[in-house]
Simulated scan of single mutants.
Amino acid sequence: MPTTIPSTKPISPWYHVKQSGGLTPLEMGVNFGLVGASCVAAQGTVHWTRTAMVQQQLAGMRGEQPLGMLAQTGSIWRSEGIRGLYRGFSAAALREATYSSLRFGLYEPLKVALDSSGGTKELPVWKKVTAGLVAGAGAAAIASPTDLLMIQMASSKQFPPPTMYQVATEVIARDGVKGLYRGLGTTVTRAAVLGATKMATYDVIKTELRRAGWTEGPGLVFTASVATGLAITVTTSPATNMQTLIMSGNVGGGGGMVNAAAEILRRQGPVGFFRGFGMQWARFGPYAVVQFAVWESLRNACGIGAI
Rank of each mutant, 00 (worst) to 15 (best):
A262S: 13
F89W: 02
Y202G: 03
V35A: 11
A59C: 12
A261R: 02
R210W: 00
S156G: 14
S75M: 10
V290D: 08
L26A: 15
Q55N: 13
T98G: 01
A239P: 02
F274A: 09
G249A: 10
V54I: 14
V258H: 10
L67A: 08
A191E: 11
A288Y: 07
V40D: 04
T228Y: 01
M257R: 01
S101H: 04
S237Y: 01
I76G: 05
F277W: 15
G138I: 06
Q158E: 15
G183Y: 05
H16C: 10
G252I: 03
N31M: 07
V188I: 11
G213W: 10
F32Q: 13
G44Q: 06
T120V: 12
P13K: 09
A173L: 05
V125W: 14
T240F: 01
S155A: 15
G185N: 07
R50D: 07
K9G: 03
R267Q: 06
R50N: 15
T49P: 01
P286D: 11
Y181H: 11
S100C: 14
Q72E: 15
I151C: 01
G132A: 08
M199Y: 10
G74S: 13
V294K: 11
S116G: 09
G249M: 02
A306R: 03
I5A: 08
A288C: 13
T45F: 14
A262Q: 14
W214L: 00
T49H: 00
Y202S: 03
T233P: 09
T189R: 00
I264K: 01
I205W: 07
M61E: 14
A139Y: 02
Q55C: 05
G303V: 08
P10Q: 07
L26S: 10
L194G: 01
L194A: 06
R211N: 14
I142M: 09
P6M: 13
T3K: 14
V46S: 04
E216Q: 05
T4P: 13
A143T: 06
L114R: 08
T120P: 03
G269C: 03
K206A: 06
M69Y: 09
E108Y: 11
R275M: 08
D115V: 05
